[in-house]
Simulated scan of single mutants.
Amino acid sequence: MGAKIEALTGMPLSGYSYGIAYATGGITEENGIKYLRIRNQDKSYPDCIAAEIGGNVFQSHYHEKIGKNLQYVLKARQIKALPPPENIPDKAGFCRAYIEIHGLLDLRNAKNGSGNRIKALRLRIYGNETILQFINQQLPAKPKKLQRIKKENGETSAIYFQGKAEIKNIFQWIDGTPKNQKIWDKWNEIL
């Protein structure tokens, strides 16, 4: 089947685009018709899917009206459903997009074996529990315990990776194209 599979309507999407869809989109129903809606502050994500299937990305000012940032939207009306992640052949591409959108690479305060304070690498991935469990099984690292995090607007889940070698292996495995170069440039500064 290769790096692309077809949605229920016969439109091919890459693993990366399916990762975008799961990370920042969802199936919406409008006037009794279901379709995929992608919404993100970074225009490159809806643009990526639009390049694969066609369609126009537009600015949504709704979030500005309620004091939040401008978002870019793609209504992919030809996509009526998303396949389960385990059916997507390009798992690295799927994970790359999801981690770009919901991942955070930073340096945390830690102590080394001598008790000295150091900055240690940490990768946190946030999101839907089911998707995180799937990603946890795909990454070339020891599966991590799913953390539940309570926030003001509800509850989310996260997985944390803290070993430098493990994190570098993850980034080597997910690296590929397409990708959001701005995000990767920031990550490379930290790595």
Score class of each variant (00 low, 15 high):
residue 3 A to E: 07
residue 4 K to A: 08
residue 6 E to D: 01
residue 6 E to N: 03
residue 11 M to T: 10
residue 13 L to C: 08
residue 15 G to I: 08
residue 18 Y to K: 04
residue 20 I to E: 00
residue 20 I to F: 01
residue 20 I to W: 01
residue 22 Y to Q: 06
residue 24 T to D: 08
residue 25 G to A: 09
residue 26 G to R: 14
residue 31 N to K: 12
residue 32 G to M: 07
residue 32 G to R: 05
residue 33 I to A: 10
residue 35 Y to G: 04
residue 36 L to K: 05
residue 38 I to S: 00
residue 40 N to M: 00
residue 41 Q to W: 01
residue 48 C to I: 01
residue 52 E to A: 12
residue 56 N to D: 13
residue 58 F to S: 13
residue 59 Q to D: 13
residue 61 H to K: 05
residue 61 H to E: 06
residue 66 I to V: 15
residue 66 I to W: 08
residue 68 K to C: 01
residue 74 L to P: 09
residue 74 L to S: 08
residue 78 Q to V: 12
residue 78 Q to D: 14
residue 80 K to A: 09
residue 80 K to D: 06
residue 81 A to C: 06
residue 83 P to F: 08
residue 84 P to W: 02
residue 86 E to A: 11
residue 87 N to Y: 11
residue 87 N to E: 15
residue 88 I to N: 05
residue 89 P to S: 10
residue 94 F to G: 01
residue 97 A to K: 03
residue 101 I to C: 04
residue 102 H to F: 03
residue 104 L to S: 13
residue 108 R to S: 08
residue 111 K to C: 07
residue 112 N to C: 14
residue 113 G to Q: 13
residue 114 S to L: 14
residue 122 R to W: 07
residue 123 L to C: 12
residue 128 N to M: 02
residue 129 E to Y: 10
residue 129 E to T: 12
residue 133 Q to E: 14
residue 137 Q to Y: 04
residue 139 L to S: 09
residue 140 P to D: 08
residue 140 P to K: 09
residue 140 P to T: 13
residue 144 K to G: 02
residue 146 L to Q: 05
residue 146 L to N: 03
residue 146 L to I: 15
residue 147 Q to A: 08
residue 148 R to Q: 15
residue 149 I to G: 03
residue 155 E to S: 13
residue 155 E to H: 04
residue 157 S to Q: 06
residue 157 S to I: 04
residue 159 I to T: 07
residue 159 I to G: 03
residue 163 G to W: 13
residue 167 I to D: 03
residue 170 I to K: 09
residue 171 F to W: 14
residue 173 W to R: 06
residue 175 D to K: 07
residue 178 P to H: 03
residue 178 P to S: 02
residue 181 Q to H: 11
residue 185 D to A: 10
residue 191 L to S: 11
